[in-house]
Amino acid sequence: MPQIVVEGLGKQYRVAERKAGTLGALGGLFRRNYCMVDALKGVSFNIERGEVVGYIGPNGAGKSTTVKVLAGILVPDAGRCEVNGRVPWRERIEHVRRIGVVFGQRTQLWWDLPVIESFELLRDIYRVEEAAYRKTLDELVTRLNLGAILDTPVRQLSLGQRMRCDLAASLLHAPELLFLDEPTIGLDAVAKLAVRDFLRELNHAHGVTVLLTTHDMDDIEALCSRVMVIGEGRILSDGTLDGLRAQVSSERRLIVDLERENGSFEQDGVTVERREGHRVFLRFDPRKVPAAELIGRIASRHAVRDLFVENLPIEEIIRRLYERIPA
């Protein structure tokens, strides 16, 4: 049985509609209109033990809501959800004992306490055996390079340091399942790399299942064997990164460096994306024009200094995918 089973999950939020103007506000005292925001409209997926799944979608698509339901924070209005065979919100205590959760926007640590004291508090909260705690802590401190900041109060940490501490905090009780909601948000490139490396190792060494929401496609490319895309509360696509790419577009990009700046590329199945000095960016569909043929044709017609073919960048794929979501 999969570790996470989600079927037809639905969640609505009730939001008060505010009228403009003082009169409108006065009217609102007597009669208030609420509108229901459908955050999830029948979301279904399964996740197997040991998978690292990327969960992406535009802002407000319902990612955080899904994570909160899976973590047992929210009770959904419809659908079924089981994690390790348990319904999260019904057996909350047993459930949360086995999961780790990181919300990138918000720290789980105690703001005024030195990091190490937060950790010790968590040890007691999760009833972790002293020996196991020592071992896990040592490992985390080494791998996340926390040694120098353990005695610093959390409010004095930089964002990258705090995120590493938050990661460690969510893993002290050795959860088998980790939910990460935008863990790399606001981090600089170095910090992002550190977090990614750590997560990859964690998955390899301990077989921890990871569900990761992010807006950074490099995170996805570096970590996730599988990507789910959510938009407007529905799962739009679920599969490998390559599969996603194929689903959206099979187009490739050909970049040509010319000896001279001009030259026309008008022909079937090729569009000129843009030019930058001597460099021309072309887009083509290999099913219509095979790459070898196209290259041969261009080389025969223009003085070419260099040329290379690449996949559409993942950002581009995502942008196109999001554009298809009815707003």
Partner: peptide, 15 residues
């Protein structure tokens, strides 16, 4: 004054 007023007026249950 008016913006603050409108915000406060929204709190119906509190009122």
């Amino acid at each position: 004054l008016s913006a603050r007023f409108r915000t406060l007026l929204q709190y119906r249950a509190a009122a």
